[in-house]
Amino acid sequence: MSAAPRPRLYENDRVMKWLLIGPLVFFLLAFMVYPTLYSLYMSFTDYVMKGAPGFVGLDNYRWVLSDEAFWAALGRTIYVLFWCIAIELVLGMALALLLNREFPGQGIVRGLCFIPLLVSPLSMSLMWNYILHIQFGVVNTVLGWLGLSAVPFLSTPSLALNTIIFITVWQWLPFSIFVLLAGLKGMPRDQFEAAQIDGASPIRVFFRLTLPLLKPLIIIIILLRVMWLMRLFDPLYGTTRGGLNTELLDWMIYRVSFVFFDIGQGAAYALFALYLTLIVGALLFKQLIKAMDGR
């Protein structure tokens, strides 16, 4: 964007701009402060939802750092995070480009693509267990008819986590597709027309024009997906329940705070996860602002 002089009206909008975010800030204060402070406090105690919390200093954090299960869960979470985001971005971009044209029945196709986002991920996880079952699952039945041997999607440690990734990508790919598609559709057309007149190849146009313009949206997708995937929980509920080498960070936190009701310990895990996400998030966010302002 050219460095147009900011009109005066914008300079004088001090009151207006705060008024506009007023309700948001109110909600934030009302809902964020209490649970965060509560958890922060509890992370220094041995509270187990019974009796009074006793102060234990940094014990909970020490436990987190020395807990092998925690690091294993973190490692798996990062693995899932990386592959999900990579696949969702590459495949999402490809499919967004595919859909970014006029074709008969486009409304129906787009509507159908929404479907994975619509079903309850929790109920779906139990259905996945059924669909992908090695003996009774429809997928393996069909593979059998094709003469292939049955695949233990959810019943072998070497595959289960990848199946969780597949389930997650299945559910969330439409998100990337539609954000990118919206970005593609919203692009200023004149630059593309100019490029077309110049005779640039589609690949060149994509890398030189499309991708830079989509950069903010791509960063947004990465940022959101990092946040959500750090808290990935639903696909495990009805499938492996953390077994077969699939225990992810949020499942572990769920187990500690919601089955063991080890509130202090759970808070320490959660805050640890939060710090990690915050750091990654802040870095991404900075990039995002830079990318957006760079335009």
Binding site: H133, A150, S155, P157, T239
Partner: peptide, 21 residues
């Protein structure tokens, strides 16, 4: 035990029996 037992609970375990496996 049949394949899939590594992730089985009563539902699939019983189903294996009922389906003659």
């Amino acid at each position: 035990a049949p394949p899939g037992s590594e992730n089985a609970f009563w539902d699939f375990a019983t189903a294996q029996f009922v389906e003659g496996n």
